[in-house]
Design a protein around this nucleic acid. Structure first.
Length: 593
RNA sequence: GGGGGCGUAGCUCAAUUGGUUAGAGUACCGGACUGUCGAUCCGGUGGUUGCGGGUUCGAGCCCCGUCGCCCUCGCCA
């Protein structure tokens, strides 16, 4: 066997004159006739041109070479030499080529259904790429993503090892716990009628590792949530998960900030600098979202006080609602940049988030024009001052309950940022969001739900509000946001059994329910639990940002479709009747004929 | 569960809006070619128009159902 001595894509002019053996796939071939045959050999490192010619090779060799086709797998021995007829600037190896003297064909390829060319791949239906994933992954850009993902996890292990963390595995077959996302479940063979669940995260296990004295835990771990996927999430995903003992939130944030800095430095050579902070309340008021994209302004401004003076029906009705507000977004230069068609489309857009419409005005030399200009006459001067309007600006208003306005304008703000080209690649705006409320009111079920999760501790000094004022009790949670995307989230945990009981009670779990579902945690907290806290990084989303893709399937070697299928293996599938009987389950779906 | 988009040759697309035998590029096969590089030139194979019904003299195109993929709202403690 011709065994590789070098990766072809790494060869450069310095190697001219040396003999190498390359292994790889035929990317393309160019048959020049009887005696001259070129091919581009692809391996993990990239492409290099291999030439078979009469001067240097036996005719028999040339004949065999001429039979090569795309995606055949070969070994080649040859001498590295300078290109005779000029370089190919498109290849990193474009100034050299390998003059082949020996060829071994390891495997012929059937005509490939798709070709692993980066310039083709954009056009190929993703369905085909997923079906033939083993071909698609041969593409240089996919190889680069796989490598980047590995560099991230390697840097993570190095960083956390340097900081005294232990990587400890937690089980995949666990007890199903309520709340949160829908569980994937696995039937038990040995306990008829009983089920395991796959973990949505190792949350409880890592807390128990702290009780167990492990002090600092990290794990790069798969998590499972049986919810409908999106472009940036799927049922099965990975976290860099960690937990620390004897810490306050400052300690965890410092550790994670250091990790983010390490990653951006290692992978992109980028210096993050100090990561600013913002309270959840601020984020919601000014950006309408708990993960603001700070790459652009367009902040939401509360103009309720002024709106009250207009007598405009839409504003009045909104302000009459419980917690009704009127907020504004100023688009600098929007009067000219935004067409009527666009602003109409934005009105439709915000309706999708429950807003009744999108009142708007343009500001110019003659004051307010278009839209609701006439209604704003009484407050024009004050509004111009309040919003620091410049001629040419356009103002959009949201008028409804705080919740609807916040959501609608927050989403509109992000859309405007994208549409107006306010986000540049290579720009990184990090932000810690802190001081979340412990609870959110679920009006439909008339109860409190934990905003983060029910193991999150109140901020020091806020504990008493659990009794007196749960709505305004702040938590010791923290989210790390980059460019409007939440890439990590965590909190200081409750380490006292009585506090944990109280929180369970507030979210509507009776003592009995809490005991039956989380008894092991409550027990553990009784027997010497250190103060502890942690955080989890979404590995997939992290790699997406680092690789510049907005498709989570690009950063997972074998991803699932939006309906949870693996198109390559065709999972999920039906199972044999015997398998089902062994597992004590029965199929209630009529079988296909 | 709701909304939107897509589905024609292995792949990427077209088919003058219901009209002859569904075309092109590419891949593949055969031939030519000694410096190509997304090689080129000549010729060729290749189709259950996702699937199932329906309307019609006639359906890739219209209608109904169904399957699959993507985006999205809900959902994702």
């Amino acid at each position: 066997m011709l065994k590789r001595t070098r990766y072809g894509g790494e060869l450069r002019e310095a190697e001219i004159g040396s003999t190498v053996i390359l292994n790889g796939w035929v990317n393309t071939y160019r048959d020049q006739g009887k005696g001259l045959f070129f091919l581009d050999l692809r391996d993990r490192s990239g492409l290099v041109q291999v030439v078979f010619d009469l001067e240097g090779a036996a005719p028999e060799l040339v004949e065999r070479a001429r039979g090569l086709r795309r995606e055949d797998v070969i070994g080649v021995r040859g001498v590295v030499r300078a290109r005779v007829a000029g370089a190919n600037p498109k290849l990193e190896t474009g100034t050299i080529e390998v003059a082949a003297s020996e060829l071994e064909i390891f495997s012929k390829s059937a005509p490939p259904p798709i070709l692993p060319d980066d310039h083709e791949a954009e056009k190929i239906q993703e369905e085909k790429r997923l079906r033939y994933r083993y071909i698609d992954l041969r593409r240089p850009s996919m190889q680069k993503i796989l490598r980047t993902r590995f560099e991230v996890t390697r840097a993570a292990r190095t960083y956390f090892a340097e900081n005294g963390f232990l990587e400890i595995e937690t089980p995949f077959l666990i007890r199903s716990t309520p709340e949160g996302a829908r569980d994937f479940v696995v039937p038990s063979r040995l306990y008829p009628g009983s089920w395991y669940a796959l973990p949505q995260s190792p949350q409880l296990f890592k807390q128990i590792l702290m009780v167990a004295g492990c002090d600092r835990y990290v794990q790069i771990v798969r998590c499972f949530r049986d919810e409908d996927p999106r472009a940036d999430r799927q049922a099965e995903f990975s976290q860099i998960d960690l937990e620390m003992s004897f810490v306050e939130r400052e300690d965890v944030m410092a550790m994670m900030g250091g990790f983010a800095k390490r990653i951006w430095k290692t992978i992109l050579g980028y210096e993050i600098g100090e990561i600013p902070r913002m309270s959840y309340a601020d984020a919601m008021e000014r950006y309408g979202i708990d993960r603001p994209d700070l790459r652009f302004g367009l902040e939401l401004r509360d103009v309720s006080a002024l709106a009250k003076k207009t007598g405009f029906g839409v504003f009045e009705q909104a302000l009459a609602k419980p917690r009704g507000v009127v907020k504004a977004i100023v688009v600098p230069g929007g009067a000219e940049k935004l067409t009527r068609k666009q602003t109409d489309a934005y009105a439709e857009f915000v309706k999708g988030f429950g807003a009744g419409g999108l009142p708007t005005v343009k500001y110019g030399a003659e004051g307010f024009t278009t839209g609701i200009a006439k209604f704003l006459e009484p407050i024009q001067a004050e509004l111009v001052r309040e919003l620091a309007l410049q001629p040419g600006d356009q103002v959009f208003f949201g008028a409804d309950t705080w919740k609807v306005v916040t959501k609608a304008l927050g989403e509109l703000r992000n859309k405007l940022g994208a549409d107006l080209g306010l986000t540049k690649t290579g720009e990184w705006k990090f932000l810690w969001v802190v001081d979340f409320p412990m609870f959110e009111r679920d009006e439909e079920h008339q109860r409190w739900v934990a905003l983060h999760h029910p193991f999150t501790a109140p901020l020091p000094g806020e504990e008493s509000k659990l009794e007196s004022d749960p709505e305004n009790c702040l938590s010791a949670g923290y989210d790390l946001v980059v460019n409007g995307s939440e890439i990590a989230g965590g909190s200081i945990r409750i380490h006292r059994q009585d506090v944990q009981q109280k929180v369970f009670e507030l979210i509507g779990l009776t003592a009995e329910q809490a005991r039956s579902k989380f008894g092991f945690l409550l027990d553990a907290l009784q027997y010497g639990a250190p103060p502890h806290g942690g955080i989890a990084f979404g590995l997939d989303r992290l790699v997406m940002w680092l690789c510049g893709t907005n498709n989570i399937r690009d950063v997972i070697a074998f991803p699932k479709t939006q309906t949870g299928q693996d198109l390559m293996t065709e999972a999920p599938s039906s199972i044999d009747l015997e398998q089902m009987e062994e597992l004590h389950v029965r199929n209630t779906v009529p079988t296909q004929p």
